[in-house]
Amino acid sequence: MNPIVMALRGLYGVWLREITRATRDRAQLIGGISRPLIWLLILGVGLNPYFRGEVYGEVRFVIPYTYLQFLFPAVIVLNIMYTSIQFAVSVIWDREFGFLREVLVSPMPRWLILLGKVLGGATVATLHGALVLILARFADVTLSLEQVALALLLMFILAFGLTSFGVILAARVRSFEGFGVFSNTVILPLYFTSSSIFPLDPALTRAQQAVTYPEWLVFLVQINPITYAVDALRGVLINFNQFAPAMGVGVIVAMAVVFFVVATIDFARQ
């Protein structure tokens, strides 16, 4: 029998299992829906009027986007981050409850098993990100089909990288309880320092950034890879970039490659 066909069947089997499990996990789906609603409806709508270049009644700079529009791509990234990194729980689960051995004694090579799992996790995370896209009209974001396709592609590559990152975390965390704490101390700080809820430069021109925000914060934002992922999605969805457009794509792809390679090395060692 053709070994490539057999390998593809195995890959499909591992992927399908992740998808089936995710569709049966109501809590995850509820999280995927409620999270963007909270961020956009409450935070987005609440802060929308304050997002203006106005200080003491004097207009300092003109901002061409509403806060909801600005926040919208970031909420997609947030949803992907949560789902991807939570994916580590599935890896820990397999390990703790013995299912892992069922695949480890199968003829599938380790890296292929991991690829199937990560593709499955990334698919679920991308779908959770896409749930936010449904709210586009509400956030005053008009999208062409082309924009949606490009955004989905970027979202998937980002989800692939973050899911691999989740696997790397899983290899270092021994318990579910530990992981809960871990994921919150990883996801939220990364999200807040990714220029997701505030622009790096209030004038959106980069002219006054260091003046307006303390240097340490600007530094944190600039070294955070999520910053560039959010920026890439903003470029596609609302046509606004704070950095060179190629930079965002480059960082997303680099994360996917590096994290997957590290995760494979980790996984092979088990």
Binding site: P3, M6, R9, G10, G13, R24, E102, V103, S106
Partner: peptide, 18 residues
């Protein structure tokens, strides 16, 4: 995998063994 049905567990095994 106890979130899958009996059949899905077998299907998974069959796929993984190509």
């Amino acid at each position: 995998d106890d979130r899958l049905t009996a059949w899905e567990n077998l299907e998974f095994h069959g796929l993984v063994y190509g």
